[in-house]
């Protein structure tokens, strides 16, 4: 019997059409890039029993298992059900039946740097935030890429995402604990933006230059610098690769709280729903923003958002990047 497949339904189920006729590949989500090691067993078994024995580790921190015959999709979905239950459903993700596999693939895996469980630089638990975002936005067919990173080093490359969330430390200075060693000042000037200067033996911070990396806390020998326990984030938006206009994500919000981030992302899904070009098979959110303009996006994204006193919103954004059609080689 000839193979008769509903390709769109298959794609939505996180299986992919591959160059090998009759063979698919399963994409497994790992929100925040963090799972219990035991799940690797299921990945291994699917790859060895149904695939070609290999596993591709995706740029978004998922697993892609190639070489699976299309007719084995149901069995593979059974095999991955326990992982979907523990990683997704137990995390609060709205999936009815784990045994049917992933219900959507448009909104990609939420990736995260290793975060403050391990990294000294990270300003928060990135995996936890990624898992929360997963719960808030998934399953969803709209093509949105989100990644969270612990500090402005941006090891997860949040600047290449539609939404890049960057942890910011509101560093606070206890003047009397400062011994004028200048470690923070020298370090900030060498490695960051030079937001700190010495004045009369104590340190002054230029709030506008501070990117909230928290390096001053790390370098201070007396704990004169410490972080405000309240968490703050920077949100960079609409970064992308692709064949038209690759560009880095640009700052949209900074010094905002977690609730603001969540609300803005959820608002954006409504914005997509309203403005997406339905004549296309799919449209990435960045191109929708290109069509509507930043101001329309901004208005939608900030609906119902109450910004805190430290929050800053970009008035205008020049997304930049380069346009393939206008670059030097095509002129």
């Amino acid at each position: 019997m000839s193979m008769d497949l509903n390709v769109k339904a298959i794609k939505k189920n996180a299986f992919r059409i591959t160059k090998v006729r009759g063979k698919t590949a399963l994409r497994i989500r790992v929100p925040g890039g963090l799972i219990e090691a035991k799940h690797l067993q299921a990945v291994k078994e699917i790859a060895e029993q149904y695939g070609d024995g290999t596993v591709h580790i995706t740029i978004r921190q998922g697993f892609e298992i190639p070489g699976i015959p299309f007719e084995k999709m149901d069995e593979v979905n059974q095999k991955i059900a326990q992982m979907i239950k523990e990683v997704e459903i137990d995390n609060g993700v709205d999936i009815d039946n784990a045994k049917k596999g992933y219900p959507a693939s448009g909104t990609r895996n939420i990736s995260a740097c290793i975060g403050n469980e391990v990294c000294p630089f990270a300003n928060y638990n990135t995996a936890k935030l990624a898992q929360r975002i997963e719960r808030e936005v998934f399953p969803n067919d709209y093509h949105v890429k989100i990644a969270v990173t612990g500090c402005p080093n941006d090891c997860i490359k949040a600047h290449m995402q539609d939404f890049g969330i960057i942890g910011m430390a509101d560093t606070q200075y206890e003047r009397d604990r400062c011994v004028s060693c200048e470690a923070c000042v020298k370090n900030c000037s060498l490695r960051v933006t030079g937001a700190l200067i010495m004045h009369n033996g104590k340190v002054r911070k230029d709030e506008r230059r501070c990117v909230g990396c928290g390096e001053c806390v790390l370098t201070c020998p007396t704990a004169a610098w410490s972080r405000n326990p309240e968490k703050f984030y920077k949100l960079v938006i609409m970064g992308r690769t692709g064949k038209k206009n690759p560009r880095l994500a640009q700052p949209f919000l900074e010094w905002v709280d977690e609730e603001t981030i969540i609300k803005v992302i959820k608002n954006t899904y409504e914005y997509i729903d309203k403005y997406i070009d339905r004549s296309l098979p799919k449209e990435h959110v960045g191109y929708i923003v290109d069509r509507t303009g930043y101001q329309v996006f901004k208005e939608y994204a900030l609906k119902g958002v109450v910004l805190g006193p430290k929050a800053r919103v970009a008035e205008h954004i020049n997304f930049g990047g380069y346009l393939y059609e206008r670059d030097g080689f095509m002129k």
Partner: peptide, 15 residues
Amino acid sequence: RFPKRGRFSDTDLIR
């Protein structure tokens, strides 16, 4: 204890 005032984020300072 100074909660979350330690050198690394989400760690405490004890002084």
